[in-house]
C-alpha cells in the first residue's frame, strides 16, 4: 500500500478526486463524552473529505476515536465542535428529527451483528427501511429482490436469519443498507463476527455493491485485511487522524 502520511488539521483528501456535491466533508471535529475534566477528547480535531463513490477504512486501536468519528459523520451524535457537510448542509446543525430523516433517506448502515429482525424473512428484513419510509410492501420487496440476487442470495429471500449462515446474514444486512439508494454506507466492524475467508468475501461484496450503487463507503475496522479492500485507509490515534494510506494499483 502506497504510504502518503499526512497529519491533520489539513483535510485529508484523495489526490485527483474532483470536488462533488455528494462528498462528505468534515472540518475540525472535536468531541468530548460527558464531563471534560480530566478526560481526553474522543475526537481532537479531525478534518477529512470522503469523495462520492470512494471507499475509506478507518483503523486504529481501541479508544482511538474511530467509532465516534463514524457516529459523528453519520449524524448519530452531534460533535462538541466542528462541522460535517453533506449535500450542501451542515448536518451537525440539524435537529434530531432531521438527522433521523437524513439517516433514513441518505445513509445506510451495516453492523457487526444483531441487526436483522429474527421474525422477518430475509427479503422483508432487507425491505424494511423502504417500508418504514412509506413505500408499499410489494414495491419494497420488488426493489430489494434484485439486490439480494446480486449479492448471491438467490432463492434465500424466504429464509429467516436463524436459517442463514453468518455470511449470508451479513449480505442481507448489506442489501438492507443499500435498499434506500444511500449516498454513504457506514459499516462498523462488518466482518467482526465472521471467519477470515467468509469475512473477506463479504467485504469484497460490500465494496463492489456500494460502488455499483454509486455510494461512498466508510468502514471502521481493526482488521488490515478489511482495510485493504478499501481505496483509502485513515489511521487514528488519540482522536486524531495520524496517517493516511492509499491502495496502489496492485491492491496492496
Amino acid at each position: 500500500m502506497r504510504d502518503t502520511t499526512t497529519v491533520t488539521p489539513t483535510p485529508a483528501r484523495s489526490p485527483g478526486w474532483p470536488l462533488s456535491h455528494d462528498d462528505l466533508v468534515a472540518d475540525g471535529l472535536v468531541h468530548h463524552y460527558g464531563s471534560t475534566a480530566g478526560q481526553g477528547p474522543a475526537l481532537a480535531g479531525v478534518s477529512l473529505r470522503i469523495a462520492a463513490g470512494e471507499s475509506v477504512a478507518v483503523m486504529g486501536p481501541s479508544g482511538s476515536g474511530k467509532t465516534t468519528l463514524l457516529h459523528v459523520l453519520a449524524g448519530i451524535i452531534r460533535p462538541t465542535s466542528g462541522s460535517v457537510g453533506w449535500r450542501g448542509r451542515d448536518i451537525t446543525g440539524l435537529r434530531d428529527r432531521e438527522r433521523t430523516a437524513l439517516r433514513r433517506n441518505d445513509f445506510g448502515f451495516v453492523f457487526q451483528s444483531g441487526q436483522l429482525l429474527p421474525e422477518l424473512p430475509a427479503e422483508e428484513n432487507a425491505a424494511l427501511p423502504l417500508m418504514l419510509g412509506g413505500i408499499s410492501r410489494a414495491a419494497a420487496l420488488a426493489h430489494v429482490r434484485p439486490i439480494l440476487d446480486g449479492l448471491g442470495l438467490q432463492g434465500l429471500g424466504a429464509r429467516r436469519p436463524g436459517e442463514l449462515s453468518g455470511g449470508q446474514a451479513q449480505r442481507v444486512a448489506i442489501a438492507r443498507a443499500l435498499a434506500g439508494s444511500p449516498g454513504v454506507v457506514f459499516a462498523d466492524e462488518p466482518t467482526g463476527a465472521l471467519d477470515q475467508q467468509t469475512g473477506g468475501a463479504v467485504m469484497a461484496q460490500l465494496v463492489a455493491a456500494t460502488r455499483a450503487h454509486g455510494a461512498s463507503l466508510v468502514v471502521v475496522t481493526h482488521d488490515p485485511g478489511v482495510a485493504r479492500a478499501c481505496e483509502r485507509t485513515l489511521v487514528m490515534r488519540d482522536g486524531l487522524v495520524v496517517a493516511e494510506h492509499l491502495r496502489d494499483e496492485a491492491g496492496r
Binding site: I76, R97, G108
Partner: peptide, 18 residues
C-alpha cells in the same frame, strides 16, 4: 431481547413513534 435490533433500526433512521 431485541435491543440490538431496535438500536440498528434507530441508527437507520426509524423514529421511536414507529
Amino acid at each position: 431481547d431485541q435491543a440490538p435490533q431496535y438500536r440498528a433500526l434507530a441508527y437507520a433512521g426509524t423514529d421511536l413513534g414507529t
